Structure formats: structure tokens, C-alpha cells
Simulated assay, not measured.
Amino acid sequence: MQRSYSPSVRRRRLSAQLRRYREQRKLTAAKAGAALGWPQQKISKIESGEQKRLPAAELDKLLDLYEVSGEVEREALHECARLAKERGWWSKYKSAFPGGLPDFEAEASAIRTYEAQVVPGLLQTPDYAAEVFRAYRLLPEGEIAKLVEARMARQGILNKVDPPDFVAVIDEAALLRKVGSAEVMRTQLRHLKHMASRHNVDLHVLPFAAGAHAATSGSFTLMEFPDPLDASLAYVDTPTSTLYLEEEEEVREFASMMSRTQSDALSPIRSLSLIDKIIESSIEE
């Protein structure tokens, strides 16, 4: 199976390493730019990842300035720059992923999410996903079908040979809220049980009995990466924008929220038992 490289992760890694090299040489962005005859803004855009393409000749100029002489080290950065230019499978679903979430999920080693209102997107069935999109706003059925197709394609990360560890904490309200018909919900709940049986998926239900909890502010996702150069990310989705938070203190706060919320949630076994009860009660209605 061909590995899904993430252009955004590679660009982020390259930018972070170039910034480290500059700081090791005790150069400001202005001085580095002046030495190369570039405006300071160009250095800043490269280090922030805002400049999406970094030509090999420009990368060599930076590495020469920072006195990076190791052949293996230089080639690794050139490979990173080449991969950062590639387009992932999700590029054809650009309207479905305006924030580029699959860019990061593609190379994450661990994904942890808390979902308050609906089943997490990585665990949704096609029919459930379609109903969620219909409820969000009035859309042509053709557009809904494409959004569902994109969401199902995104779920492929859990089917990889070496998939990320996925921990989902789902509020009990999301399981009791009927999305679509009763049959759509039963199928969705049975699908949750199926996914929870996978070695890389841990499912926890946060029961109403837990009362107030650490994540009362809303849903969020945390992603960790195998390369130590790739810092963890917190992701928050809103109706008008997507936010990626990577400052160490911010990520630490979200990680603390996740840990405390997971502690308040039911164990995987008790979570499956509760899902069974919800399925049974829906059949009796």
C-alpha cells in the first residue's frame, strides 16, 4: 500500500528545522534575509510555512548560510521540500476539507478526540454522515454525496497497515440524539461497536452521570506525530473556520482536558454495554 504523505506536515517540519538552524547561528530573520539579498518577510514566510513551495536552489542558499554541511541532513531536507509540494488524495475534496485536516491525520501516530454533539467523523456511517450534512445547511443532494464520499475516504487512515492509535470520547448525548431514522441510528451504533473491536481504536462514552466535566467548552481533536520534529497539534472546528493550535502551552491545556474527560468517561467495556442498551431501547420503541 502506498503511504499517504502529508504536504502540510512536511512543510511544517521543514519550516521548523530551518528556523532552528537560523537560531543556532544566532541570526535574526532580518539578518538572514539581508545576507541572501531577500526581504525579511520572505524568511518569515518560509519559517511559518506560509510559502508553500521552496525551490531547491533557495533551500541550498539557506543551508549554505546556516553552514549545514552534512550530505544526509541536506538530502533529507530536500526530500522534505519535494514532498511538501505534492498534492494529497484529499485535494480533490478541497471543499469538504477547507482546513486541510487530512493533511495532518495522514501522518499522525495518535489521534484523540472528544465529540459532544455527534459521532466523530472517522467513525460515521455513510447514511449517518449524510444526515449530519443535511442538518448543517440546505445543500443539493449531489454536493451531500460528494461530502459523504470525502468523509468515507478520510476514514481510510484507520485501515492502513500501520494505522494511528485512535481514542474517541463521545458524549452520551451524541448517542441518544436520533440523526435520521431509527434504523440509521441503530446501524451507526452497531458500527461503533465494530470499530471499537479494532486494536487501534479505543471508544469511551462520557455518561450524563459524569455531570460537569473538563471539556464542557466543546469538541476538539489532538494529534501526535512519530517524528520528534513534528510538534503535537490541537484542532478545533467552528462553523466559519478551523483552528490549529500548536503552541506548547495551548496543546498542553487541551491534552489535560482530554485526559480528565477520558477519566470521567466509561471504560471501553462499559461503553459498549451502554451502547448495547441504547440499541435495545431503540428497538423496543
Results as ranks from 00 to 15, higher is better:
Ser69Met: 11
Lys42Cys: 07
Glu73Tyr: 02
Arg10Tyr: 08
Ala56Thr: 15
Leu27Thr: 06
Glu105Tyr: 06
Ala30Val: 14
Glu47Arg: 00
Glu58Tyr: 07
Tyr93Pro: 06
Gln17Thr: 13
Ala29Glu: 11
Leu77Phe: 04
Lys61Leu: 14
Arg22Glu: 03
Asp127Thr: 10
Pro7Tyr: 00
Ala108Thr: 01
Lys61Ala: 15
Lys45Tyr: 15
Ala57Lys: 15
Gln24Phe: 03
Gln41Val: 11
Leu83Met: 04
Leu65Ile: 08
Tyr128Met: 03
Gln117Met: 13
Ser15Ile: 02
Ser109Glu: 09
Glu75Gln: 12
Leu36Val: 06
Arg74Lys: 09
Phe97Met: 04
Ala32Lys: 04
Gln124Lys: 03
Lys42Gly: 07
Glu79Trp: 04
Arg11Trp: 01
Gly100Trp: 05
Trp90Lys: 08
Ser95Leu: 14
Thr125Trp: 02
Glu107Asp: 10
Ala106Tyr: 09
Arg11Asp: 00
Ser8Gly: 13
Ser95His: 09
Ala29Phe: 00
Arg11Gly: 05
Gly121Val: 06
Trp90Tyr: 08
Ala108Ser: 15
Arg19Ser: 12
Gly121Glu: 11
Gly37Val: 00
Val68Asp: 08
Lys85Asp: 12
Ala57Gly: 01
Glu50Ile: 01
Glu79Leu: 15
Asp127Val: 06
Gly37Asp: 00
Glu73Pro: 08
Gly33Ala: 04
Pro55Cys: 10
Glu115Pro: 05
Ala130Ser: 12
Gly49Arg: 05
Glu115Thr: 14
Leu54Gly: 02
Arg13Pro: 01
Ala130Asn: 10
Gly121Ile: 09
Ser6Asp: 06
Glu47Asn: 02
Ala16Thr: 08
Trp38Val: 07
Phe104Asn: 01
